[in-house]
């Protein structure tokens, strides 16, 4: 078993795992009763995308996308903080979610 062969298996399987993570988070994003769940899933998607980006840049062995990775991190953090800041300004309970909490 030559080492580069094992590496590519591990990396590709990691990529598949991350893609699965993204799909699962999407379920929560669409189903999510409260807005906060949706923001959480948005953050989750952000992070898994960063993971995917890292793996692709390793597979392509190009160092161009490292800045993009940093910007993705910034956007992930910034998006979440912006959404929570918005909710901090406007969120009132009565327009709360329709689903019951214990599903």
């Amino acid at each position: 078993m030559t080492s580069p062969y094992i590496c590519s298996i591990l990396l590709n399987s990691a990529a598949v795992l991350l893609l699965a993570a993204i799909l699962l988070t999407m379920v929560r994003l669409i189903k999510g009763p409260t807005v906060f769940d949706r923001i959480l899933s948005f953050d989750g998607i952000g992070v898994s995308m960063i993971g995917l980006l890292v793996i692709t840049s390793i597979l392509w062995n190009s160092s161009q996308f490292l800045d993009a990775i940093l910007v993705y991190c910034i956007f992930g953090f910034f998006g979440t903080v912006a959404f929570s800041y918005y909710l901090h300004l406007t969120y009132e309970l009565e327009d709360s979610e329709e689903g019951s909490i214990n599903d």
């Binding site: 994003l29 807005v35 949706r38 923001i39 948005f42 998607i45 952000g46 995308m49 995917l52 980006l53 993009a68 993705y72 956007f75 998006g79 959404f83 918005y86 909710l87």
Partner: peptide, 17 residues
């Protein structure tokens, strides 16, 4: 609106991907 906005920023994420 908020859900729409979240979905929109996710779309933005993927387009940049």
């Amino acid at each position: 609106w908020t859900t729409r906005l979240i979905a929109l920023s996710v779309v933005g994420f993927f387009i940049s991907f």
